[in-house]
């Protein structure tokens, strides 16, 4: 393993090399310090019920854990980042399989889990061709695995659910792991995750302030056109400014391309949210699980990120390229 790879995978000393990482980490810390004051003031002013107050504090405590789950691996190194992304993929797939009933199809579930493991390996190995090959190969394996019970009844359903699960939580979400192969992955990942989560909050706040017209009343009755447009208006400049500092002097560093990146994050993020709303409404559920107090399930929290990951990866990869100059096939390419 070359020195540059070792430093990228495990070199926590480089955690704050990029100013954007410092700014984002400090912003997150400031928000966590300010939030209790805001919660206290808001609940006093609104004379909230004790249930509402408890929910807000649950949410706040859970956010601290979630932030640690994101910040520590990203700052610690690419190895830990890819490990955390794989964990997230597994947890999301687990919830998806349980709410859809796919978990009872043990063969298909096992193939999806193995597929996610390989996706994580391909990202860790920086072997992009394997990553690309894994999607059609895993889909083929799922189609074969569906034959094993020798029961044509329900074949399309179980195979279809398996392919959707792998596509969303293995292949699509796995792009976050792929991004960690870039030398300067820390600010990129933090900016995207930060922007996607803020995008949800912006949509919520703008929806309350200027939302009148319902956006998709059958899918998600609380979403409004005002909220969606407000989120785009606020998230886009945030991503564009952050992106300007991260990719300064590269082909991406033009106003149009940076705004394009921001619009992608905001719009695709909202579609990810709606996608999970659709899945839950189809199943007649409110939350995907009760794993995170105040939030629901892991999927409820990270739904917006699922579709953003491939969109951002391919946009940036097309314009400037990811992992330029980084050694490939770190582990699989060893010569004996």
């Amino acid at each position: 393993m070359s020195e540059i790879t070792r430093e990228r995978l495990f070199g926590f000393r480089h955690a704050f090399d990029d100013p954007v990482t410092i700014v984002l980490t400090l912003t997150a810390l400031t928000l966590f310090l300010l939030a209790p004051v805001l919660i206290l003031v808001a609940t006093r002013a609104a004379n909230s019920t004790s249930d509402k107050r408890k929910e807000l504090w649950d949410r706040y405590r859970s956010w601290i854990w979630l932030a640690l789950f994101i910040l520590i691996p990203v700052l610690a190194g690419a190895f830990w980042t890819i490990f955390a992304v794989a964990t997230l993929s597994f947890l999301c797939y687990r919830e998806y399989a349980r709410i859809t009933g796919l978990f009872r199809e043990r063969t298909i579930s096992l193939i999806v889990v193995i597929g996610i493991l390989f996706i994580a390996f391909a990202a860790l190995d920086n072997w992009y061709r394997l990553y690309v090959a894994l999607f059609p190969l895993t889909v083929a394996l799922i189609a074969i695995g569906g034959l094993i019970p020798d029961q044509p009844k329900g074949y399309i359903q179980r195979v279809g659910l398996g392919v959707l699960g792998f596509a969303l939580f293995g292949s699509a979400l796995g792009n976050l792991g792929n991004m960690a192969n870039d030398w300067n992955y820390r600010p990129i990942l933090l900016l995207i995750i930060f922007a996607v989560e803020l995008n949800d909050i912006f949509a919520y706040i703008c929806g309350h302030l200027f939302g009148h017209r319902k956006f998709v009343p059958n899918t998600s009755p609380n979403k409004t056109v005002g909220g969606a447009l407000g989120a785009i208006a606020l998230t886009t400049p945030l991503v564009a400014v952050g992106g300007h500092f991260i990719w300064s002097g590269t082909a991406l560093d033009t106003p149009v391309r940076l705004l394009g990146l921001g619009i992608i994050v905001s719009i695709v993020g909202q579609f990810g949210d709606l996608m999970l709303s659709s899945i839950k409404r189809d199943l007649g559920l409110k939350d995907t699980s009760k794993l995170i107090p105040g939030h629901g399930g892991i999927l409820d929290r990270f739904d917006s990120l699922i579709l953003v990951a491939p969109a951002v990866f391919h946009y940036v990869n097309y314009v400037v390229g990811f992992a330029v100059g980084q050694p490939q096939q770190i582990f699989s390419g060893w010569q004996i």
């Binding site: 399989a97 349980r98 709410i99 009933g101 009872r104 096992l110 889990v113 359903q157 939350d287």
Partner: peptide, 29 residues
């Protein structure tokens, strides 16, 4: 095509500790 017959896990909506104590629990992989 047959109607959709996959149902959510019977223990959906329980917290992890409630789930372990529930007879509705269904094991995963």
């Amino acid at each position: 095509m047959e109607p959709w017959d996959l149902q959510p896990a019977h223990d959906t909506g329980l917290t992890p500790s409630e789930r372990f104590r529930s007879v509705r629990r269904e094991s995963g992989l």
